[in-house]
């Protein structure tokens, strides 16, 4: 455990040492934005729309027959999505998708000696392979979170209208009622931390693979599991620091 953490820090030190050629890194970062970011928009939209709908319906059924005004359902759905869903849930989903992708890609390069080949060319392989992924995710994941917020709130509206759980007017009034802009800042700050965790932790497990295809699979699982745990831990800490 501690030796893992030590090796992780050493790797991060190498990742953040001065890049060889800025132009090449820029090109790689753009490629990773497409690979890790743009390719995740679909899954984020699908999941957000459904979770937005479910949150709205569940809130509605929990408040059945009570005296609470219906527009508060819109407010609850909005705050759940802004505070927790679009950052943490989306973070966990990306840990699964992006994390396993990174760990298996880098792990495959390790066992086929492509990382050694980079080192032999005089390239800092850790920095070349990992830095563009970290930067791409830190830059692009906030957009994914914002997309998720918009789509999730829209999903809640669709559910409300289609099932007749509450009226469009109530929902729209609710999602504007008592709006705290800071919640968005809070969610985006969390997203940036999560982006760093997902990319660096899964890259760490991929980079240190030893053996064959089986170990690459294991590294990919470990990358996902540990990024997820760290995301949740980070969630607790940041919530305490920012909202308490």
């Amino acid at each position: 455990m501690l030796s893992n953490f030590g090796r992780y820090l050493i790797l991060m030190y190498r990742v953040f040492s001065r890049p060889e050629r800025f132009r090449v890194y820029f090109r790689e970062t753009v490629r990773e934005i497409e690979n890790l970011g743009l390719n995740s928009i679909g899954i984020v939209i699908i999941i957000s729309i459904f979770i937005g709908a479910v949150i709205t319906l569940q809130t509605r059924y929990n408040l059945e027959s009570s005296w609470i005004p219906l527009y508060l359902i819109g407010l609850t759905a909005r705050d759940t999505i802004l505070l927790e869903f679009s950052s943490t849930m989306v973070g966990l989903i990306l840990a699964g998708k992006v994390g396993s992708n990174i760990a298996s890609e880098i792990g495959h390069m390790r066992i086929t000696e492509q990382i050694d080949a980079l080192e032999m060319m005089g390239i800092n392989s850790a920095s070349y392979l990992i830095l563009p992924k970290i930067i791409a995710a830190i830059f692009f994941n906030p957009f994914l979170t914002i997309i998720s917020m918009v789509v999730g709130i829209f999903g809640g509206w669709v559910a409300a209208v289609v099932t007749g759980a509450l009226s469009s007017a109530d929902y729209i009034y609710g999602i504007q009622y008592w709006f705290v802009p800071f919640y968005i800042t809070y969610a985006l700050v969390k997203t940036v931390f999560y982006a760093f965790i997902i990319t660096s932790v899964s890259a760490y497990y991929g980079y240190h693979v030893q053996g064959g295809a089986l170990e690459v699979g294991r590294a990919s699982t470990k990358g996902v599991v540990y990024s997820s745990i760290l995301i949740l831990l980070c969630d607790v800490i940041l919530t305490q620091l920012m909202l308490a």
Partner: peptide, 19 residues
């Protein structure tokens, strides 16, 4: 070392071409 490595070439067992 990075500078000196630029004077080296290496051929790996599995070729290690970038896929």
């Amino acid at each position: 070392r990075q500078e000196l490595r630029k004077e080296m070439g290496m051929l790996f067992q599995g070729s290690a071409l970038f896929d």
